[in-house]
């Protein structure tokens, strides 16, 4: 069966993964797209992280919001999703939306227009972003999927979460390669952080303890042109 959709040239049957019965694309740019639902999920945008640091005296370049939005816009233009779920920590702090430069705000609003947009509450941004459209929710269930910011301690089939900023590391021929990744074990999926200034934490770190069945853990590492699926046994800590 050849899968076809409005922007179907992007999606080949071979690139699809199954999550709790739903089919999804792990896009190498760090987003998940569910073609049947026309739903795009993106996590940990951390918009206005730059200005959040600047407020505390570290004047790092104020271009992170712009850079993040530009990347997101390109992806939205590719998939034309009906629903966008921003999986929490969309803003680096509660005042982020307010601080956002007017031009960025307009950019974001243009991207949101004509689609259902959900702001899932995160630990950095528990409240609805100021003066922005979209619906703020604690969690969101669609079909067999459950979107929430922090992965729950209990096992939940079909849970899509962010929060931990997973990355994975391999050593091949004496050289170490570390990349952001999607991490999944067949039960849940934790998404990589999308924001321009977001760091990452190795999936083998303590913070992930108990979240995955280690024997089926896979890291989908983000490459320059594609995703690389690496089994848990190949991964290195640190």
């Amino acid at each position: 069966m050849n899968f076809s959709l409005s922007r179907a040239t992007l999606i080949a049957e071979a690139d699809l993964v199954g999550i709790a019965g739903e089919r999804a694309v792990c896009d190498r740019r760090g987003v998940l797209y569910f073609p049947d639902l026309r739903l795009l999920a993106v996590s940990d945008l951390h918009l206005e992280k730059g200005s959040s640091f600047a407020r505390r005296g570290a004047l790092i370049p104020p271009y992170d919001t712009g850079a993040t939005l530009l990347r997101l816009q390109a992806i939205i233009a590719d998939y034309q999703p009906r629903i966008v779920v921003s999986l929490g920590d969309s803003f680096h702090d509660g005042g982020g939306a307010e601080r956002m430069h007017q031009s960025f705000r307009e950019h974001l609003e243009a991207m949101m227009a004509g689609r259902d947009w959900f702001w899932v509450a995160g630990n950095h941004d528990p409240d609805a972003p100021a003066d922005l459209p979209g619906e703020t929710v604690r969690e969101l269930a669609i079909g067999s999927l459950l979107f929430r910011h922090e992965p729950s301690k209990l096992r939940v089939e079909g849970e899509i979460a962010g929060h931990l900023h997973p990355c994975a590391r391999i050593v091949q021929r004496g050289r170490s390669v570390r990349r952001r990744c999607f991490a999944g074990d067949g039960g849940r999926m934790i998404m990589p952080a999308f924001g321009a200034y977001t760091g990452s934490l190795n999936v083998l770190d303590r913070a992930y303890a108990g979240l995955f069945r280690l024997e089926t853990l896979m890291a989908y590492m983000l490459g320059a042109e594609r995703i690389f699926a690496i089994s848990g046994s190949m991964l290195r800590p640190g």
Binding site: E13, A14, L16, V17, G18, I19, I170, Q172, R173, V177, R179, G184, D185, G186, M189, M218, Y220, M221, G223, R226, I227, F228, A229, I230, S231, M234
Partner: peptide, 24 residues
């Protein structure tokens, strides 16, 4: 990364490789 991914494919058979359908 490609080498590492191919190693997985080789060891595990198709289905775990990066270009084939994955189960998550």
């Amino acid at each position: 990364l490609m080498e590492a991914a191919d190693l997985v494919e080789e060891a595990m058979g198709s289905g775990h490789g990066s270009n084939s359908r994955k189960s998550v």
